[in-house]
Simulated scan of single mutants.
Amino acid sequence: MRPVLLLLLGAHLAYAGKHSLKYIFTAVSGDIDFPEFTSVGLLDDGQFDYFDSNTMKAVPKTEWIRQNEGADYWTRATQNLIGTHQTFKVSIQTVKERFNHSTGVHTWQLMYGCELDDDGSTRGYHQYGYDGSDFVSLDKSSLTWTAANPQAVITKHKWEATTYAVKEKAYLENTCIEWLKKYVDYGKDTLERKVSPQVSLLQKSSSSPVTCHATGFYPSGVKISWQKNRHDHDEDVDLGETLLNEDGTFQKTSTLGVRPEEWKNNQFSCVVEHQGKTIRKTADDIITNFESVPIGIIVGAVAAVILLLVIGVAGYLVYQRKKGFKPVSGSDDGSNSSAHT
């Protein structure tokens, strides 16, 4: 399931670059200590609003949205999401029955949104997933729905007998883009900032793999690579996903699994490149005792884990592994996400 972000061009943007507006709706069923339903809105991968079924209230997560939208905006968003919560409760039960899942923890997700490139091109997507796998997605060009498995065929035929696709296409190509541009204008000071990463080499023990950890950087584009004796080295490397920190910055890891004697007999280094700046860390920089890890790293890592849970439990983690897939819905009255499966 590939997230195509659609952002409508419109008037001149506050500044050039690619921008995205995305929302993730997640319903959870089963014995788990987590809200039954959550909604997260993201602008350029940074969270700006949040709702869950425990608090039953849509709330701002950034100063730029808090300062530019008043009580009516959040009341409308809350009412819309309360209705979506009820729809998702029904939908996840319906899909569980189709898969004959009567026990265990299961997730039902909607990811939709829009993206605008600096050349003016736009893209949009609207996709559902069950337990981290594709279920059904909108084909905007043909106004049809693509079923990813036999269980989704019923939903495909049901929705194609309605105007659901037409409404979603209109939302993605008009409303979503209008709000994207408005949000970009609201948050231009935040979106324009550049913050270099804090880089550390971490190791549980002298015989454990070494993790190169970059955190606190913005924007999200970062390259982490390894070198052996000043030559590129890509064997035994496990590159992690880019994660969002609680403060809106990002973090990413790359782990190198080589034997201790290889570290002693060779010169390994982690190279982090971000916004034209290069940071290099060598064996001399390895921290092997977690008690000595700088508090900023620990806080950043914990915040990222918490935010991932908030964004949508296991379902979101699985979707993130599907390279390129991105999400969207929102307090802009959102798309018509109330269709029953």
Rank of each mutant, 00 (worst) to 15 (best):
D45F: 04
I82P: 01
A161D: 05
T190L: 02
D131W: 11
Y125P: 01
P219H: 13
D185Q: 15
E246W: 00
V59I: 15
I154Q: 09
V28Y: 02
L239V: 12
Q86T: 13
A148T: 04
K252E: 07
H231E: 09
V222D: 02
T278Y: 11
G124M: 09
R66Y: 01
T163R: 07
D284V: 13
I295P: 00
L116A: 08
G276F: 12
T163H: 06
L243E: 13
V271K: 03
S208V: 09
H157C: 03
T341K: 00
I24W: 02
L110D: 01
N68M: 00
F25P: 00
D33N: 05
F99I: 03
V4R: 07
E192Q: 14
M1P: 08
E115Y: 12
D189T: 09
K89F: 05
S200L: 08
Q198D: 02
V90P: 00
S335P: 01
Q86S: 09
G104S: 08
G221M: 11
E168K: 12
V302M: 08
H231K: 14
A214G: 09
T242E: 05
V318L: 14
K281C: 08
N149A: 13
T144S: 00
Y186R: 03
E246Y: 02
L308Q: 05
L191H: 09
T211W: 11
V153R: 04
V90M: 11
N245R: 15
S142H: 12
S331F: 04
E262Q: 13
Y183I: 00
K323G: 09
A147H: 14
E168I: 15
K322E: 14
Q227C: 07
H340L: 14
L256Q: 04
K228I: 04
D119M: 10
E168Q: 13
Y183N: 01
F325D: 08
H213N: 02
Q47K: 06
N54D: 04
D234M: 11
K158C: 11
H106C: 10
T84M: 12
P3Y: 13
I286L: 06
S142P: 11
V40M: 02
S141K: 01
D185Y: 14
